[in-house]
């Protein structure tokens, strides 16, 4: 059995993907920031000289997560709409999936994490996460609400461990895995 399909890695990657997906689309649906989910600006990666996250939105390369947030904000604009139930953009996730693509990820890792965790411990994982669903425009808060328009959406992410929080079980803030690559399409 390869390290990528090792039972612990499968279990941990599925759990990490689920937590990530739940967090990411909840933030977006509530109009909250998703910038801290990206590798940009995280201390361990910044020190080690990691490049900024590669973000491509409907074929457009976007240089920072903040710029993606501006696009999301732009997408939400409906200044003339008086009805709050026709103002929203709502993402509904219908499915997601995850593969471990490097079970021995070590970029920027503190030596103690390398010493402590082997590639079958489900910690030092680089993961490919795919998500799909429907995005509703001009709608309300809830599933099944009327909408003005809808699109199929697909997201592909590559996630890596957040060394700043991964070994701190008490840490409640901060994402355990960070985005280094994000591809979005909605058609």
């Amino acid at each position: 059995m390869s390290a990528n399909s090792h039972e612990t890695n499968v279990r941990c990657s599925c759990e990490a993907a689920k937590n990530f997906v739940d967090w990411y689309y909840r933030q977006i649906n509530e109009g909250k920031s998703i910038s801290q989910g990206y590798v940009n600006g995280h201390a361990a990666y910044e020190r080690a000289g990691h490049p900024p996250a590669d973000i491509c939105i409907n074929g457009l390369v976007v240089s920072t997560p903040q710029e993606w947030e501006k696009l999301l904000e732009q997408q939400r604009q409906a200044p003339k709409q008086p009805d709050p139930n026709k103002r929203r953009v709502r993402y509904e996730v219908e499915g997601h999936n995850v593969h471990v693509i490097n079970a021995d990820y070590r970029f920027g890792a503190p030596q103690k994490v390398l010493d402590l965790h082997s590639p079958t411990d489900g910690v030092r994982m680089m993961m490919s996460v795919t998500v799909f669903g429907t995005v509703y425009f001009g709608t309300g808060k809830n599933k099944g609400d009327e909408y003005w328009e809808k699109r199929d959406f697909y997201d592909s992410f590559i996630l890596v461990p957040n060394w700043d929080v991964i070994e701190k079980p008490g840490v409640r803030h901060g994402r355990k895995y960070l985005i280094i690559s994000h591809n979005y399409r909605a058609n």
């Binding site: 604009q77 425009f137 001009g138």
Partner: peptide
């Protein structure tokens, strides 16, 4: 555009 949120451009 002012009445409804609109999908992002598609390249």
């Amino acid at each position: 555009k002012a009445w409804f949120p609109t999908p992002l451009p598609y390249l």
